[in-house]
Amino acid sequence: MRTSLPFAFAVVATLAMSFMSSRAFAGDPSGLSGKQLFFRCVNCHGADGQGLKAGTLQVPSIAGLDAWYLEGQIMKFRNDTRGAHPNDTKGLMMRAMARSLNGDAEVKAVSAYIASLAPKVEKPDTSADIKRGQQLYTMVCMACHGANSQGNPDPNIRAPSQVALESWYIQEQLVKFRTGVRGSVKDLEGLRMVPMVRDALPLMAKNLGATLEEADRDILAYINTLSGKP
């Protein structure tokens, strides 16, 4: 009798694990909270979502971004609207991790939790021409992202606040939009970004006597002076 008890326990445990894993494969939500789900983001984005740099891999801060924006981006990674370009090294990593979430409910839950984290505060680059950055921002970015970069969740716009995004990350995305790595034909918001940063911004920069690199730097510095509030 004593020896049959552990055996019975092993059989029951095996059956229970098989049942649980079969439900997981069937796509059933796990019922985990956003905080629990965030555990799988921590290795790259850090325990408080502030981003980190590991070797040559720099991972952006995501803390405090709008929940609707986070949710939209994770869904884009999941359905190949973003991060599916062969040259988008980081995007391909995020694409795989986004798929580790089990269904829309988990995407929503983890997005809400990340949105609740304290955003990273970045000081403006004092070497930049912030006044020119303001001019460029007003001409190129403001219509969608708002006067204070508060973002616009309107379904026809869906432009995020850039305040909680790090400057290096925005710069990296600008390059991706310009080179076709981001902004596929499935990505409606991304597609709107392409002509703005690839065509309009260089033209405006030229009119103001700035190179494209200077224009990017000035805009990013100006964004860091904004409140992100309506």
Binding site: G27, M75, R78, N79, D80, T81, A84, H85, P86, N87, R95, A98, R99, N102, G103, D104, G180, S184, V185, K186, L188
Partner: peptide, 21 residues
């Protein structure tokens, strides 16, 4: 094949659209 597709239901599909780069 790069035309916009319907949003994928969960779980997401494995393959991304083909591109010429």
């Amino acid at each position: 094949t790069a035309l916009p597709g319907a949003p994928a239901a969960s779980p997401a599909p494995a393959a991304a659209p083909a591109t010429q780069v």
